[in-house]
């Protein structure tokens, strides 16, 4: 069972890589790994400068790390969700893939992972631009690396879980919904304090932020990359408890994802819309 899931995920990874990797096409690389991520970061930078009038400050560092990691968030979810949509609407192969004796979810996980890897250059480029042009004090002491690996891994699992929950929804809605993953990303942008500490969220929104793995993941990554006096979303929480909370929230989301996926699939099969394709 596990071996089969892993094998299927590898197939998904390979397909996702073929579909999405853009390193060989300069135009696509420019669009998805340079222009859009840097555009998103520069918006924040100019917002900062408009208010701060040219001075540097810790919020700028906060922005840069959040914006740098953002492509991974969107892409991991998008890779998964588009795995479904493309196979359903574009290649029209969902019926074959689904009826083949493979766990479809594992295939989607593979696609999500491929996508997350494709997002890496954007992250690196943004961080490098931040260091070189904005003098963001990004450091990576060697002894932070285990923490980085653990937090990053958990974060990706959390993202895939959110993506899989989205897939549960996508089973039931039409192809017009290809924007859903990106829209989920936009909502997360607010809710998990991607570009501001969640302490500025009003009291009624802050609990939402605390329920999302991405919030803790971003905080953990900031603690890895930025000096100890940087702006924080959870000023009172130590590094260890932060990682523990991330683990817990990720586990909860994995369970939600499993439920949402199963429920969406069952419902779609009941309604006979597993392989539909509509638009307007």
């Amino acid at each position: 069972m596990v071996a089969r899931a892993v094998r299927t995920a590898r197939v998904g990874f390979w397909v996702g890589w073929q579909v999405q990797s853009n390193w060989t096409d300069p135009f696509l690389f420019f669009v998805y790994s340079v222009a859009r991520p840097l555009g998103g970061t520069l918006i924040l930078v100019f917002m900062f400068f408009v208010v701060a009038g040219g001075r540097h400050g810790p919020m700028l560092d906060f922005f840069v790390v959040g914006a740098a990691l953002w492509p991974t968030v969107v892409w991991a979810m998008q890779g998964l969700a588009w795995g479904l949509l493309e196979d359903r609407e574009h290649f029209k192969t969902i019926a074959y893939i689904y009826t083949a004796p493979i766990p479809f979810w594992a295939y989607l996980v593979g696609r999500g992972l491929a996508s997350a890897v494709v997002a890496m250059p954007a992250t690196l480029l943004t961080l490098i631009a931040g260091i070189a042009l904005l003098r963001v004090p990004i450091i990576l002491p060697l002894d932070h690396i285990p923490y980085l690996v653990a937090a990053f891994g958990l974060g990706v699992v959390g993202l895939l879980a959110i993506g899989m929950t989205t897939v549960g929804l996508l089973f039931l809605i039409s192809g017009e919904a290809w924007r859903l993953p990106e829209a989920m990303g936009q909502a997360l942008y607010l809710l998990c304090g991607a570009v501001f500490p969640i302490t500025v969220l009003p009291g009624w929104l802050e609990p939402a932020a605390r329920l999302l793995p991405v919030t803790y993941w971003l905080e953990a990554m900031r603690r890895v990359f930025l000096p100890a006096d940087a702006v924080r979303s959870f000023p009172g929480m130590g590094d260890g408890p932060l990682l523990g909370t991330l683990l817990l929230v990720t586990a909860i989301w994995a369970a939600i994802a499993a439920l949402a996926y199963a429920a969406g699939l069952t419902r779609a099969r009941q309604k006979g819309i597993l392989d539909f394709s509509t638009g307007y």
């Binding site: 917002m47 809605i173 017009e176 919904a177 924007r179 989920m184 990303g185 936009q186 909502a187 607010l190």
Partner: peptide
């Protein structure tokens, strides 16, 4: 007929817009 757009084309993206409001709040603008 497919009101799901209210979710993915209205509700979620709007949340994204308001993230920028909080960015300015964090900057005391």
């Amino acid at each position: 007929r497919e009101p799901s757009w209210i979710f993915y084309d209205l509700a979620l993206p709007i949340l994204g817009v308001f993230a920028f409001v909080f960015v300015y709040r964090a900057l005391d603008a």
